[in-house]
């Protein structure tokens, strides 16, 4: 499988990259690690005239902490996220998700920004970021905008990113004390895309009830989405298996899986219930720890 021909540039700084995107609006595509884009190019499902490789752009691959949030550069690889102890201490869900993506080579090169911008409905980050109420930072020649992850994923391979923008950073609010999260992925085999994935981030209030909650689902809709019905059912509730089961069932009812080689929709709906339940339990366990 051979890609159709394209041109390639590797700008040295973000200003140049943004200028090129503006000049070649609609023809150019940003290349990060390449592990999402290259398979599409080889299948000729994407045939951009120009690839803008952002590997030389400095400062896009760090993981840092501010007073309010964790900031993950768009070019941080899955492996870097997996191995960052500081991040895992605050947001263990990030390690859960990073460790389940692809295989070691893919994790060495694939980046969170690339995965989020590509928006494969079976990719893991979009659901996790929605569960975390994360924000996505987009830069263009005209400036920077910060958009919530919820609402960013519009459809299969389609996001709110403009053709002239580069995704530069992910911002995740620092969880309050007594928080915990978990990502539970069901896969057919090591390295597979998710059959179903459930991301849960939970904060317990002083009364032991669920004060804040985010649930994101992978691979059971045209785009990964937040399971808002389940969130509504649980917010303010007393955590426990019975409540978790009910909420997981609500998440399942809200999902819109398709029949495919991973299984029929009926199976996937049942697995949404199971994976959401497991994620709720695990998140709760971590919130208590």
């Amino acid at each position: 499988m051979i890609p159709a021909a394209f041109d390639y540039v590797r700008p040295a700084d973000i200003g140049e990259a943004l200028r090129i995107l503006k000049e070649r609006e609609g023809e150019a595509k940003v290349l990060s690690g390449g592990y999402s884009l290259l398979p599409l190019l080889k299948l000729r499902l994407a045939q951009p005239a120009l690839l803008v490789d952002i590997q030389a752009l400095g400062g896009l691959d760090g993981i840092s902490r501010t007073d309010d949030d964790m900031r993950i550069g768009a070019r941080a690889t899955h492996r870097r996220i997996l191995e960052d102890d500081g991040l895992a201490a605050v947001l263990p869900i990030m390690r859960d998700a990073a460790g389940g993506i692809g295989d070691p080579q893919i994790r060495n090169w694939g980046t969170i920004g690339g995965s989020v911008a590509h928006a494969d409905p079976a990719a893991d980050w979009p659901a996790v970021l929605q569960a975390l109420h994360a924000s996505i930072v987009l830069r263009s020649a005209g400036g920077e905008r910060v958009v919530p992850a919820r609402g960013f994923f519009i459809d299969t391979f389609q996001t709110g990113i403009e053709a002239t923008e580069i995704l530069t950073e992910i911002r995740i609010p620092l969880p309050a004390p007594r928080s915990g999260g978990s990502y539970q992925k069901l896969e057919r085999r090591a390295g597979d895309f998710s059959t179903v994935g459930a991301a849960v981030q939970m904060t317990l209030g002083g009364d032991g009830r669920i004060a804040q909650l985010g649930i994101g689902l992978t691979a059971v809709g045209d785009a990964p989405f937040a399971a808002t019905h389940a969130e509504d059912a649980l917010r303010g509730a007393k955590p426990g298996d019975e409540m978790f089961r009910e909420a997981a069932a609500a998440a399942s009812r809200q999902s819109r899986p398709a029949d495919d080689s991973h299984g029929p929709a009926e199976y996937k709906r049942a697995m949404v219930t199971e994976m959401t339940f497991r994620a709720l339990r695990a998140a709760f366990g971590r919130a208590l720890a």
Partner: peptide, 13 residues
């Protein structure tokens, strides 16, 4: 120094 799948990387990269 990082293992990579060379079918999923461009020569220019």
């Amino acid at each position: 120094g990082m293992s990579a799948k060379s079918c999923t990387m461009l020569a220019v990269q």
